[in-house]
Design a binder for these strands. Structure first.
Lengths: 230, 230
DNA sequence: ACAAAAGTGTTCCTAATACACCCATGA
DNA sequence: TCATGGGTGTATTAGGAACACTTTTGT
């Protein structure tokens, strides 16, 4: 039951987003160097407070667009972190999300007031110490991403509209950190029915590869593009 | 970015808990009849606002003990619901949990000011209309519970310390709404290594059944493979 | 002796894995 | 013609699913 007391001392509510992308054959996370106290000068996850008239998802998408310039993103709620002393300034509850973005869609210049030096894509296997409990959040996101990769085709969200099966396999190998068998991988992906061949081939120095695209017609049960709660 | 504005108009943060138990061979959810507006007289999930010095988990456990008298509960965070107009009184963000309790541990009398008439265990297949977006929350909890039952032994949390394998099978059958094969079920459960036989037998009108207990040494998280298909 | 629940093995089938060679192209 | 990545099929194995009878007890 709510008491009058509760109504006066309210926590702040923020969103934090673990943004994954694949660049240079590595899984990267977007980090922001903090300008103010607390943890000034330390790296942290992008995020911010929820506006009073927007849903947490919208807040996450807004922050994401501000930092990466990308609008069409796979976004999934991760977990809500609310330990009383996780933020030294006071009570802040953070709804954490993770996002998957195609690196080719990222705009090189960020739109906000941030300097480029303060916004970096960092290799997940080479993370610095992070502000607040953001290391826990990244760890949780990684666990969830890897888990989800085992039984869905989320990996598609990290690729451009047209991609080869080898591209997709590379995404899985990078994230799961293990080599996969080419024939078995293709069998599995094709049997899921989540991709369809474009009739275009990718030209290159060697044999042209068939380009595929994400098949939108598939029911959401097999491949979730939208998260729960409309 | 947070503006000063945000810092003044903060949302309230609540927890709502979907408490499952098995009674009378049915899966039940704990509901509370609301005494005040909004939705006065309607059924709703137990829950309440987070105190300023407690974690969301602690808030959920506190509410849970108030309503059921049970302390030792399986509790898992579900999802955070934060649509701007989900509560007509104003901005309320709710961190939803689900809990599994052994019905034999529930104290018949609730400790709060609630009348017993206003606190009921209701069959999940026979839910009334619920206040707020609580029907969505229950739906989500059910989905998650069923999903988790497929590959873990969470069902154990609904049973007393000692139980027969038939008891456990009944739990799974009730929640998944399907009949399971006795031999396959036992093979699976025993191969997981999550239970161990007590050396006691349950006496009854027929052949005595071996009683089992939950084996604490084994992490319940690791035991089956997930199917590729979602 | 019988009613009622406890307990137990084997066969079948599907799905995952392991594994190696030919193909098409640009240089 | 060769270097490079693209593309394909089969045999084996492991795990899930289907399936029926004997055992033990209380009445």
């Amino acid at each position: 039951m709510a008491t009058e007391h509760d109504k006066y001392i309210k926590p702040s509510v923020a969103v934090d987003i673990v943004v994954f992308t694949i660049m240079e054959n590595e899984l990267k996370v977007l980090l922001i160097k903090r300008g103010q106290q607390p943890f000034a000068g330390m790296w942290s996850l992008p995020g911010g407070f929820i506006h009073i008239d927007e849903s947490p998802e919208d807040a996450a998408l807004r922050e994401l667009e501000e930092e990466t310039g990308v609008k069409d993103v796979y976004l999934e709620q991760l977990y809500t972190f609310g330990r009383p002393n996780r933020d030294p300034r006071g009570r802040v509850i953070s709804i954490a999300y993770y996002a998957l973005v195609d690196s080719s869609k990222i705009k090189p210049h960020v739109t906000g007031a941030e300097k480029i030096e303060n916004v970096q894509w960092v290799d997940v296997s080479d993370l610095p110490k992070l502000a607040f409990d953001h290391e826990d959040i990244v760890g949780y996101a990684l666990k969830r991403l890897r888990y989800k990769m085992e039984y869905t085709a989320v990996g598609l969200e990290l690729l451009p509209d047209l991609f080869t099966l080898t591209d997709l396999q590379r995404v899985y190998e990078i994230i799961l950190s293990e080599k996969l068998d080419k024939r078995n991988f293709r069998k599995k992906v094709l049997s899921m029915g989540v991709v369809e061949p474009a009739k275009i081939y990718k030209k290159g120095p060697h044999r042209p590869a068939m380009l595929y695209r994400f098949k939108k017609s598939k029911p959401a049960s097999t491949f979730k593009r939208i998260k729960f709660e409309g």
